[in-house]
Amino acid sequence: MLCLHIAPGKAEAGEYAARIEYADLEHIDDGYDVQAHIDYRLSPTAKEALHKGVRLTWDVSIELRQPGVLWDTIIHKHKLTYSLQFHALLNQYVVQTPFDRSEMFLTLSAAMNFMAAVHDSTPIPAERVTTGTPYLLAVKTQFNREQLPIPLRPVAYLDNQWFLSSAWYTWPIQK
């Protein structure tokens, strides 16, 4: 384990906002793999919409930043899209992973747990990371309102029941 766990750099306001519980880099053969755990929280309206067949989509953004005086330099970024849907016929929850794979779960918590464990299979190339340089690993998950049905979109921008995104969470990484 090469990373150093420190408390997240930002806290997110909002009753149903997701939170990034931790994130780190794991060294693999040809680079570094990002691992994170996200605490998704569904509001009653979101749950109702899910059970009525509405697909919920989150975009998990991952950035590796090099801190600067005025601004940080992004040396790697990647986005993973997860979607959650209820299969009424089978009474199961289907999670569509970023890798075009569908996973079915009997319970909602099982499906949410699956989504919570982020494992980016696209590693950060080792040559991009310099030894001894401090980095920031930033993760956030963005609830994609534009994937909701059109009539629901204006409401989703105004109703805090649909404020399911997290802010950016950053962890300092010292290789």
């Binding site: 109702e48 919409a49 009525k52 067949g53 509405v54 299969h87 009424a88 016929l89 049905p149 059109i150 009539p151 629901l152 204006p154 409401v155």
Partner: peptide
């Protein structure tokens, strides 16, 4: 299932549809 889900979704979105 598609018809059911679609119907359920429309039913759920009834108020949103009106508003929209």
């Amino acid at each position: 299932e598609f018809a059911f889900i679609r119907y359920q979704e429309m039913n759920f979105l009834r108020d949103s549809l009106k508003t929209s």
